[in-house]
Design a protein around this nucleic acid. Structure first.
Lengths: 334, 334
DNA sequence: ATGAAAGCGCTAACAC
DNA sequence: GTGTTAGCGCTTTCAT
């Protein structure tokens, strides 16, 4: 594992390390012939730059740290691909780190990447994150951070989001247009700004249609399948009547669907359902699920663009908040 | 972004940098009182270790690089979680990097992580990888690499796998036990060792049951849904008769299911289907899919254990090849 | 166009 | 138990 260094090249060619360093990075001062010589020697001796040393010296890194709740969510894996696309083209490398929806892990991972001196962060908050001091401290130290999807509602943070309020309103209005009036909302953790937005959109759509808001139709739970399943089970056990469901995301909608099917309740005959995110499963399940298409890949790309522009300190600072469009995809469940 | 260094602490306390360094790492030589002093000062001044500098000095890193085809596959995201579990507990950090099934990208990413001097690699090969010279070169340089799932068939590599041959034999024997005789195999790229194993297991099961092998029933394609869909479409267009399907993985089985449903062909009435991997979707689709349970999380854990033991140079070298158990999960599709 | 020298922040012989 | 010193591999003034 003995490494060939710039010094070896220097010795080999009878040049100084500074000349080698410059030649390798194609510095304009260096004679073309010298560059050729250096490159040839580098190849011959199997030289490989030590990025760790370079980073130490330059206090600069080309690694972007991604902090997300869980890789397995289709939304996040697509977003990662978007980030990678942009990052690689700009010469950056990407490190992914999952918080597993755990605030503590989020802090630990963030700190680990910070100590490794990543160039910047792209973050989507965990469900259990009560405050973002661990990010604010870094921001104060000059670390560049861009939040996406699960962001913190504060004006001076960079973020890439969708209009959850509007998307949710679209979803619920769609249910109303189909003649539904008793619309259940399976809400997510209200600490998450996007879940709050979706709840507000739900209320707004009802109000616009003149349907009175009924607290009993709103169930608060998590973001996973079993949350949806349990909520609907409870609702039915309580004999609360409803004709449709708007779930905070697709997994929750899937859970609800499973329980209804198990109970032999027809979808959409007896109950209509709308999800949120357009996970692949929504297309293949039976009945296929009406849902909101969230531009995951695009969100990732945008977040990376903003971050890189921040890292490069480009003038014409990017906007603090970027909002991308969503679409309602109508399928069999409504 | 001015960093507080060990030197600042030394100056502040009137001690030498080496004492600070040792105190911080809890070196036994250092007086307990001194340690307390140093820690207090570190806290007060906001000292944060520069891991980049440490890594440069020690030529050691605690980052594990993961190279996988695509994060979005449920199998891989579960495996990553397994790796993380073990890695974090052993004080390692994990970097995930996807090849997107592209050999070129696999090489680039591997090299990028190598230049960053990661402590070792955990790798699952891309579908388009024709040879693994890019890994062998690193291994020769002393880099520790553990392959999992999609491995290269060579004795002296460390790998964590399942017995694809046996699992596939189980799957096909299950179809046979249900009375099927004309069993289609939707095979994966034969360059992948696990796909070859699954093909071999298919043949073996037929032979054991005395069913003649029919080349027309084997279709070679990719690992995605549309591959399964196209293959079955083609088969039906050619009027080739079959009573069941064994797909190389779940997405391919899902694609096949979609096309059969579209054509109004009953499952399992007319055609039975078995997949491979036990992706979540297999449980929720209709009909739910009989499949092979692959211990993704466990495979990740094992791979991480082997790698870490390799990195630490523990004696009692781990076995080169570790094989984990699989299970057939019977559902509605058979 | 090239070289000398200093230093990024840390660790680790080797002294004492 | 603590300090001195050198150096990991690289970049970067400042000379020449």
């Amino acid at each position: 594992m003995t490494q060939v260094t710039i010094k070896d090249l220097a010795l080999n060619l009878g040049l100084s390390t500074s000349t080698i360093s410059r030649a390798l990075r194609n510095h304009p001062d260096i004679n073309i012939e010298t560059k050729k010589l250096v490159r040839a020697a580098a190849l011959k001796l199997g030289y490989e730059p030590n990025i760790v040393a370079r980073n130490l010296k330059t206090k600069y890194s080309n690694q972007i740290g991604i902090i997300i709740p869980e890789i397995k969510h289709d939304f996040f894996s697509k977003a990662i691909s978007g980030i990678e696309e942009v990052a690689y083209n700009a010469g950056f490398t990407v490190i992914v780190s999952q918080s597993n929806e755990d605030e503590e892990r989020e802090k630990i991972n963030t700190n680990a990447l910070y100590l490794h001196r990543v160039a910047g962060f792209i973050v989507s908050l965990s469900q259990t994150t009560q405050n973002i001091d661990h990010f604010k401290i870094l921001i104060e130290k000059g670390v560049k951070i861009v939040f996406f999807d699960r962001v913190w509602e504060e004006d001076d943070l960079y973020k890439v989001v969708i209009d959850d309020f509007k998307a949710s309103k679209d979803a619920v209005s769609h249910l109303i247009s189909k003649g539904n009036r008793r619309i259940v909302h399976l809400a997510g953790p209200q600490i998450l700004q996007n879940c709050r937005g979706r709840f507000e959109g739900y209320k707004e759509a009802l109000e616009e249609a003149g349907i009175p808001f009924d607290e009993n139709l709103v169930l608060h739970g998590g973001m996973h399948e079993d949350d949806g399943l349990k909520s609907i089970k409870q609702l039915i056990a309580q004999n609360i009547e409803f004709d449709s469901i708007f779930a905070v995301n697709d997994p929750v909608a899937v859970g609800a669907t499973l329980y209804l099917k198990k109970m032999g309740i027809e979808i959409p005959g007896k109950v209509s359902i709308v999800g949120f995110s357009n996970n692949p499963i929504t297309e293949y399940m039976s009945p296929s699920l009406t849902t909101i298409e969230q531009p995951a890949y695009e969100m990732g790309k945008k977040a990376a663009e903003v971050l890189i522009s921040l890292i490069k300190g480009e003038d014409g600072f990017p906007e603090k908040k970027i909002t991308l469009e969503t679409n309602l995809i109508e399928r069999e469940s409504t």
